[in-house]
Write a protein that binds this DNA or RNA. Structure first.
Length: 337
DNA sequence: TGTATTTGACCTTC
DNA sequence: GAAGGTCAAATACA
């Protein structure tokens, strides 16, 4: 790792640590204006994201080097192949070269899965509106599954190089459940368009309903009548490895509005296939089950939270209820160096 | 005409 | 070789 990057990484992580400490002081009941908490959480998020990007970047390079050194011969062949591509510009070779490179990158991307439950059997007419714009690039019949799987990638892939993709598949067991697998984080910053409305409405949701329950199996349930939202906290061990949370009275703010016409929320064009509600985000019951990438757990976990429609940076966790794991090595050199 | 979707072919992984 | 994932030409649509 380059010294500059190493220092940047330490700087970002240290800043995150300090901001977390500040936030903790703000969380004292006697202080803590909500705006300050929100600002601090955003700063913390930003700081960790930068750090993780650095980590991600370096681990990518590392992996590439490892691959090269482990299979030098193949690497050389690849180089030759790429030269050939430039010279001969044969379509086939270009395709091979590109796809190998892309696959190497894809393997390093974090991945996590959510289950989205569509309630009332009201078929929305568009894609899941999770705050990002997706472009469908493929559909595949999956062996043993009753329904095909759809493949989406970020609309801004070409323009901004955003590598985020998602797969949407209707569940065999419950036709109202869609399994959405996200891969890679958005680097196109398009989520900001939903953040502005969500915070206020989210708070409103919580204030109006205040029906959050904790189930014995550590699932958080947000009961909004027909719109249920749950989060399997058992998966938080994977999603947030460094922390442990207690959910006695969490404040989490899903980004949909209860009672709102769900179909109206759908804005972007999509497939009209009856089952293909890939972009549909209304009336959801989500179970986030994180499947970690090959990079590092913390990269995947953090990315999954910041990138997921469940949490797109707009939630304000009530950290009063979050117990920082005392084992988390915030102060250890292992963590910051 | 530009953009999104469909779909068969191709590639990688297991 | 089967299955999953992606590409890209063809097609649809606004």
């Amino acid at each position: 790792m380059e010294i500059m990057e190493h220092n940047s990484l330490i700087s970002e992580l240290t800043q995150g640590k300090e901001l977390a400490l500040q936030l903790r002081t703000h969380l004292h009941p006697s202080s803590s204006p909500e705006q300050a908490c929100l600002f601090l959480t955003e700063m913390i998020q930003s700081s960790f994201e930068k750090a993780l990007l650095l980590l991600n970047f370096n681990s990518s390079n590392l992996k590439t080097h490892q691959i090269s050194s482990l299979d030098e011969q193949e690497g050389e062949e690849e180089e030759e192949e790429e030269e050939e591509v430039e010279e001969s510009s044969t379509k086939k070779k270009r395709k091979i070269s590109r796809s190998r490179d892309a696959l190497k990158k894809r393997k390093l991307l974090p991945r996590w899965t959510e289950e989205i439950k569509v309630c009332n059997g009201s078929a929305p007419e568009g894609p899941l509106n999770d705050g990002y714009s997706w472009r469908k690039y493929g559909q595949k019949d999956i062996h043993g599954a009753n329904f095909p799987r759809c493949y989406y990638r970020c609309t801004h892939r070409n323009v901004r190089g955003c590598l985020a993709t998602k797969q949407v598949q209707k569940s065999d067991n419950d036709p109202n459940i869609f399994e959405v697998t996200y891969r890679g984080r958005h680097t196109c910053n398009q989520s900001s368009n939903l953040g502005s409305t969500s915070i206020s409405s989210q708070n409103q949701i919580y204030e109006e309903t205040n029906q959050i329950q904790q189930k014995p199996n550590s699932e958080i349930w947000f009961d909004f009548g027909d719109n249920n939202f749950n989060l399997k906290t058992e998966d938080f061990d994977q999603v947030f490895p460094p922390f442990s949370f207690s959910y006695e009275e969490p404040i989490m703010n899903p980004t949909f509005i209860p009672g709102e016409d769900l179909t109206a929320a759908v804005s972007s064009p999509a497939t009209d296939t009856a089952w293909d509600w890939s972009g549909y985000d209304g009336g959801v019951q989500r179970v986030q089950s994180s499947e970690q990438s090959a990079v590092t757990e913390i990269v995947s976990a953090t990315t999954s939270v910041t990138n997921s429609p469940i949490y797109n940076g707009d939630w304000d966790f009530s950290l009063d209820n979050i117990d920082f794991d005392h084992n988390f090595p915030f102060d250890s050199l292992d963590f910051i160096s």
